[in-house]
């Protein structure tokens, strides 16, 4: 049984792939950092950007860039041990010299596709569910806690939408910040007061007024004769409610 621990970055995963290719052996279990201790001997893989680049260049140039995209999207799901499925998918694509995603007779392909679907769906959902608050310093701030690590998929949409504003999207669960001011940056942060935006003095003077108008709208747009809260929750699960204004 080969068990591997890595830093949880995509480059780290590509490094594992590089090693696996050389050793001709696919690991059985791959843990991201900070997992509970286990008794088997664990190899810790140190991220090597050179190796990672070799793998990603190889996939883009020699295989199909869709393979790399699929690997990345599945990786973002953060599903337990999805890394092994990703490596197997890469391996099969390598073997047949093209994107292997249609080989749904393999269970790992099904799991990979399922992970990708979950990630893409959640990303789409948050294009709508993110809520920006205007801060007193003029910055537009949107906190959220997605199930999957989707923050890196958001820039294109919000840059197109708000090219002339300064804004921040904050994944509170993962301490990641996407900051935009004419150019975009993704930053890992530490020791951040996650509740600062709840204090009224940090918000722009008109913020509360528009929040309250939005609540008014939300309430009056519902048709009581058609009440169906189950359906509402199906689309908008309660775990997403925390950072919404209206509910």
């Amino acid at each position: 049984m080969k068990i591997i621990l890595y830093d949880g970055t995509f480059s780290g995963l590509l490094t594992i792939i590089f090693n696996a290719y050389n050793e001709k052996k696919i690991p059985d279990i791959i843990f991201r950092q900070h997992n509970p201790s286990i008794f088997n001997v664990i190899d810790t893989v140190k991220t090597d950007y050179k190796k990672a680049t070799v793998v990603s260049d190889f996939i883009t140039n020699k295989l199909d860039k869709i393979v790399l995209k699929n690997m990345y999207l599945a990786y973002l799901s953060e599903f337990e041990n999805i890394e092994v499925d990703i490596i197997k998918y890469f391996n099969l694509s390598l073997k047949i010299k093209r994107n292997a995603e249609l080989h749904i007779e393999k269970n790992y392909i099904i799991r990979l596709k399922n992970a990708i679907t979950k990630v893409i769906n959640e990303k789409h959902k948050f294009l709508g569910l993110l809520r920006f608050r205007k801060l007193s310093n003029g910055i537009w701030y949107a906190p959220f806690e997605p199930d999957h690590n989707i923050i890196s998929l958001l820039p294109k949409h919000f840059i197109n939408r708000y090219p002339d504003k300064r804004w921040i999207i904050h994944d509170i669960k993962r301490n990641l910040i996407l900051a935009y001011d004419k150019k975009i940056e993704l930053i890992q942060i530490k020791d951040f007061d996650n509740n600062f935006y709840l204090k009224e003095e940090n918000l722009s003077y008109e913020e509360k007024a528009f929040q309250s108008l939005w609540k008014t709208y939300f309430k009056s747009a519902s048709i009581s004769e058609r009440k169906n809260e189950k359906l509402q929750r199906q689309y908008m699960p309660i775990r997403y409610w925390k950072y919404l204004i209206e509910i």
Partner: peptide, 27 residues
């Protein structure tokens, strides 16, 4: 599309922003 200093764009697929108590999408 949007311009460099404009506000907003549209998305071919459409986007839902919330769901009311009757389960209908607010877009």
């Amino acid at each position: 599309g949007n311009s460099k200093t404009g506000l907003g764009n549209t998305v071919t697929s459409g986007v839902c922003h919330s769901w009311t108590g009757d389960g209908r999408c607010i877009s």
